[in-house]
Amino acid sequence: MKRNSLTVAIGALLILIFALLLFVFQVRQSEVAVVTTFGDPKRNIDAPGPYLKWPWPIQRVYKFDQRIQTFEDKFTEGLTADNNNLLTMVYVGWRIVDAKTFFPKFAGGSVPAAERMLEGLLSNAKGAVVGRYDLSAFVNADPEQLKFDEIEREIQAMVEAQLRTNDCGIKIEFLGIKKLGLPESVTQTVFERMTSERQVLVSRLQNEGEAQAEKIRATANRQAAEMLAAAEAEATRIRGQGEARAAELLPVFEKNAALANFELRLQAIEQSLKERSTLIFDERTPPFDLFQGYLTNRNSK
């Protein structure tokens, strides 16, 4: 009997497994599912786990990937509020949240069909929002005037509103501008403007450099002049000191003014007749006064 009960247990287990395979289906974390009864979508499943169903052909399960998929629209041209042509490309992260709504809406839950619809919605919303803003709202150094985030949010809000009215079982997770551009002919104008900006920069750099160099040189010259002036003043002061000290010695000469005078005159004569001089003298000039009395003219005297 023991062996028989083991056989029974194994048999029961096999039946159980077979029944499980027939009546139970799993929905993964990454999926949402809809159960149709004779083709009519009845049950919506949006949480992972095991679920029961009647076997085919009574009920059928359609599963959809509920994870976020990224979709981008075309790089299209639109007019901004200040009549600039601006090329924009938007990407959107969307996912299927409600399989029961999604399934009948797009022929058997076709994702490409959903993307085609999204593309239409996106281009409408994009055109409408871009037309409400100036070009300066897309690019601006001033964070107050830059409306990049706002534009993205507005496009998203508009697409979401349209999805709600259409009731598609789709949710937008995120939306952003992927690419911005200008029409080909406009780029040429932009290049011309940029070139002239560069030229302004070049001349500014040149002038600035020269002005600054001039300033540096002028400062140096002034400093040099100041230094020299200070040195001159110092030199004068020093020489003055010397003269003052020399003056202290003057009383020595004052003791005998006649002698001092005589000595000075002697010095002066010696100095003045030092080089290449011509001296004309008569007998009265010493020591030639010796000629006078004793020699040639003695008689005539």
Binding site: I216, R217, T219, A220, N221, Q223, A224, A225, M227, L228, A230, A231, E232, E234, A235, T236, I238, R239, Q241, G242, E243, R245, A246
Partner: peptide
């Protein structure tokens, strides 16, 4: 250039002061 100018000036200034010092000594 500025460095040259100031260096030259400072050496010139030193020379003048030194000259004056020498002249003072000599004179005294």
């Amino acid at each position: 250039t500025a460095n040259q100018v100031t260096n030259r000036a400072s050496s010139e200034a030193a020379a003048r002061v030194n000259g004056a010092l020498a002249a003072r000594t000599r004179y005294v």
